[in-house]
Design a protein around this nucleic acid. Structure first.
Length: 597
RNA sequence: GUGCCGUUGGUCCAGUGGUAGGACAUUAGCUUCCCAAGCUAAUAGCCCGGGUUCAAUUCCCGGACGGCACACCA
């Protein structure tokens, strides 16, 4: 399957397999189901966990970053600061004739000079619909007197009894990192750069959940917030310089261009990717996607068009995979500058900067005042405080003003002539040890559910074995929910006993092992194939008859090729460990004690 | 959220104004003994609420859920 050959039934195939084999299914089906919510079944939960572990391994452990776990519910002020409370609001107006609903703010923007109609508020936008004589784009009916309703994509909840405090289910995990930045920077000893990751649930009350796991109301995100110095930190580009990226640039999307493959280095040098940090992560992520089983023929990086880019993001790329004939966004890579930290700093009392010490302290001359409030207070009453502040600003701006007998300052709209002596003006040498820096943020934000869905779809295979149709999941061994299935060839007591012993041994060694002694061996192999179990271990008569019990051999059967090899039982753990780490089944045959069947 | 279509064992489907049938799957037994074989048997279903009717899984209305299109996707 390639992008030239989309399969419109892929969604149906994956959904059917998912339900039947316990990967995922709709939540609360017993109660009619609920839109946009899915429950991961036994195989799915294991596969999802393995995807998360693979992500953690690559983007946290190997990168030396830290991982945190914040609550799903955060208090309202967090989302006031992040902009979600306003920005996540949609202003909806319904057409009285055809019932189509539209974004009222967009209609106003299209027909007026306003660029951000949402900021005008509900009432004003409702008035504008009438003032501008706006009509329904669908049927042309007048929208003049229609009510404009607010729809917030965040789930709201009350914290504590009564209406004490409002909280929201987080619409992205990122804010749980930004809001805790003051603590996290302490932990990182204020040393840039450092990265903080989080894997967790996020919630959006989508208007129209769609297409299985693609658009849901509760989903798992894996986000990394890499805090870097705005000028001084550069990514280790050399590590990924030669990684080839399928890039679908904004220019290509606007013209008749197509996906162009460039190395990370080329894309940075020719300016296709503006931010070296983003380029770095596109490179790291590309190899990671390939490793977890994303089909690279059905993968691309798409640059955001200028219109869809958030205003704070200098450069923004999405990783997209093709499933069921459509491209879906699985990761967003954004250079968020200091947008988030600056906003939290403005809304809270905490400091969201790190203190960067100079190599050498710098001494600068600074003019300052120390107004004599005992004089100012009685003389100017309530204005005294503002006058003192004004004097201070004036000292910084225009120190010469204090040379005169009296100083003129503006406060509260009036000009006051203050005795220069009362201001206590002085110029002193101040030693600066460093400065406060608001870090910039590089954010790769992964949608685990969509990746999970992509991996399922892209690993799905159909072939024929001995004239019989077969379906299997070609999952990377590292990701397989069940790693091995142990099976007695037939249900004779000695074979069953031996098989159970092997099963226990492998489980004790840390493998996810299934056991199956039902029906014919072929049927059992097919069952495991369907959930992507990489290897089956079969105990046969030969196993129990072999005189040297410790050297008895079993059959290993490979999922992808159905090839078989005989290996001694004592070597099983070693061989399976190698397979799980990515060794090819064919390479097992070169190992001592192993032979082909 | 709007429009169209749909919802029948675990899964995929057929069908009916008098409460249902297949295929696959599952379980048990026989058989077979390294790739979904065969035979026998068993388990298991009409999305929810209201209406029309002697009788509704079937017809009508509403809801939930799903698919497609449009809208939406910070």
């Amino acid at each position: 399957m390639s992008r030239d050959d989309p399969d419109p039934t892929e969604l149906a195939t994956v959904t059917e397999l998912a339900k039947r084999r316990g990967f995922y299914f709709q939540t609360a089906e017993a109660y009619g189901g609920v839109g946009g919510f899915f429950t991961y079944g036994p195989q799915g939960a294991a596969l999802k966990r393995n995807v998360e572990d693979a992500w953690r391994d690559r983007f946290v452990t190997r990168a030396g970053h830290m991982e945190v776990s914040a609550p799903d519910v955060m208090p309202e002020p967090v989302f006031e600061a992040s902009g979600h409370l306003d920005g996540f609001d949609d202003m909806i107006v319904e057409c009285p004739d055809c019932d189509a609903s539209h974004r009222a703010d967009h209609l106003v923007e299209d027909d007026s000079e306003y660029e951000d109609a949402e900021a005008l508020g509900l009432d004003r936008v409702a008035d504008l619909l009438g003032d501008l004589d706006l009509t329904c784009p669908e049927c042309g009916a007048s929208l003049a007197d229609e009510p404009v309703e607010e729809f917030n994509l965040m789930f709201e909840t009350d914290i504590g009894p009564g209406s004490a405090q409002s909280g929201y289910l987080r619409p992205e995990t990122a804010q749980g990192i930004f809001a805790e930045f003051p603590r996290l920077k302490q932990y990182a000893r204020e040393q840039l750069p450092f990265g903080v990751a989080q894997i967790g649930a996020a919630y959006r009350n989508e208007i129209a959940p769609r297409r299985g796991l693609v658009r849901v109301r509760a989903f798992t995100q894996a986000e990394l917030e890499h805090f870097v110095h705005p000028e001084k930190d550069d990514p280790p580009l050399d590590a990924v310089a030669d990684v080839e990226l399928p890039l679908y640039s904004a220019t290509a999307q606007e013209g008749d261009g197509s996906v162009e493959t460039k190395t990370v280095r080329e894309a940075v040098d020719d300016g296709t990717i503006e931010s070296p940090w983003i380029a770095y992560y596109l490179g790291v992520a590309r190899d990671w996607y390939a490793a977890i089983g994303v089909d690279m023929d059905r993968f691309r990086y798409r640059q955001h068009l200028s219109g869809e880019r958030a205003h704070y993001a200098a450069d923004c790329w999405d990783a997209e995979t093709e499933v069921d004939g459509d491209w879906i966004e699985v990761t967003g890579f954004a250079y968020r500058s200091d947008y988030d930290l600056a906003n939290h700093a403005a809304h809270s009392e905490e400091s969201f900067t790190v203190f960067e010490q100079y190599d050498e302290p710098k001494t600068v001359e600074r003019a300052s005042v120390d107004p004599d409030m005992a004089t100012l207070g009685p003389e100017y009453g309530g204005a005294a405080g503002d006058i003192a502040d004004a004097l201070e600003r004036l000292a910084e701006r225009d120190p010469d003003a204090f040379d005169a007998e009296t100083v003129a300052v503006d406060a509260d709209g009036e000009t006051y002539a203050v005795d220069a002596e009362v201001a206590n003006f002085s110029v002193e040498a101040v030693t600066k040890a460093g400065e406060h820096v608001t870090p910039h943020v590089v954010e790769p934000s992964f949608g685990i559910g969509r990746l999970f869905y992509t991996v399922l779809a892209h690993s799905h295979r159909e072939d024929e074995v001995d004239g019989e149709a077969r379906t299997y999941l070609e999952l990377p061994a590292e990701l397989a929910p069940t790693f091995a299935c142990v099976a007695p060839l037939v249900t004779d007591a000695p074979l069953v006993e031996r098989a159970e012993a092997v099963r226990e041994e492998l489980r004790a060694a840390g493998f996810a092992v299934d056991y199956d002694d039902s029906g014919s061996i072929g049927r059992r192999y097919r069952r495991q194939d369907e959930v992507g179990t990489p290897v089956c271990v079969t105990i046969d008569h030969e196993t129990v008859e072999q005189s040297d019990h410790d050297a008895a051999t079993v059959t290993l059967r490979d999922r992808d090729t159905t090839a078989q090899a005989r290996v001694p039982v004592p070597d099983l753990v070693e061989h399976l460990t190698a397979l799980r780490a990515g060794t090819d089944f064919a390479d097992l045959l070169d190992r001592e004690g192993v032979h082909e069947v």
